[in-house]
């Protein structure tokens, strides 16, 4: 494990904690896209099928359990918690997630390393994770005032993806590897989706004004 990978995982963990903090303590999910959260729950459920078949490390298993548990509980909170669900912007969060799920599944069925159930599911999760943030970005664009926690959540998620790219570059030069360009392309696409958000995030930070994305 290199420093970029660890920093990436910690940023990812921090993003989840920020979101849980907002939902659990403020009892609000305003500005949070349920569609994106459902997609993440599906991403982890399909990617971590190996949790029961392969053991990598205690760290790996614990982190997988955290990401599975947190993503499903966030979805549960937004859908069912008696107070939290009232703050959900249902009318704004209109992105149809099957428009992302179906193409990702088709792509995974045709473009993968091995045609096995686990491998296709793993590839599907990579493709889906790459685009899962889109409903959240669309929702942010529609939200006039983005609160600090929601802004930080998206920023941390973007930082996590960026750090993973540094991790791959580092591993490329230091470890034996075979080509897995699928991971590279999905990861780069995912990071690029945040470029626009990062630009406005830093602008608002520099000018000390509230974050707002242009429509």
């Amino acid at each position: 494990m290199n420093i970029f990978r660890l920093a990436g995982d910690m940023t990812h963990l921090a993003s989840v904690l920020v979101l849980l903090l907002k939902i659990h303590t403020i009892k609000s999910c305003a500005g949070v896209s349920l569609k994106t959260q459902e997609l993440y729950a599906l991403v982890f459920a399909t990617r971590y099928l190996d949790i029961v078949t392969d053991f990598i490390s205690v760290y790996n298993t614990v982190m997988k359990l955290i990401f599975l548990g947190s993503s499903f509980s966030i979805v549960w909170y937004i859908r069912h918690h008696r107070v939290v669900r009232r703050s959900y912007d249902k009318d704004q969060d209109t992105f149809r997630h099957y428009l992302l799920m179906i193409p990702c599944m088709l792509l995974a069925l045709f473009v993968h390393e091995k045609f096995t159930f686990k491998e296709v599911m793993w590839t599907f999760s990579l493709y889906l994770e790459a685009v899962a943030i889109l409903p959240q970005l669309v929702l942010l664009q529609r939200t006039r005032n983005i609160d600090n926690l929601t802004g930080q959540y998206v920023f941390l998620l973007g930082a996590y993806r960026g750090l993973y790219i540094f991790n791959w570059i580092y591993r490329y030069f230091t470890e034996p590897h075979f080509v897995h360009w699928i991971t590279w392309i999905a990861g780069v696409v995912q990071t690029l989706l945040y470029a626009d958000f990062f630009y406005y995030y830093f602008e608002s930070w520099k000018n000390n004004v509230r974050l707002q994305l242009p429509a």
Binding site: D9, I56, N60, Y164, P176, H177, F178
Partner: peptide, 10 residues
């Protein structure tokens, strides 16, 4: 064989 294939990542 201990090739890096990304499966040890999260």
């Amino acid at each position: 064989r201990n090739f890096y294939n990304g499966k040890d990542e999260l």
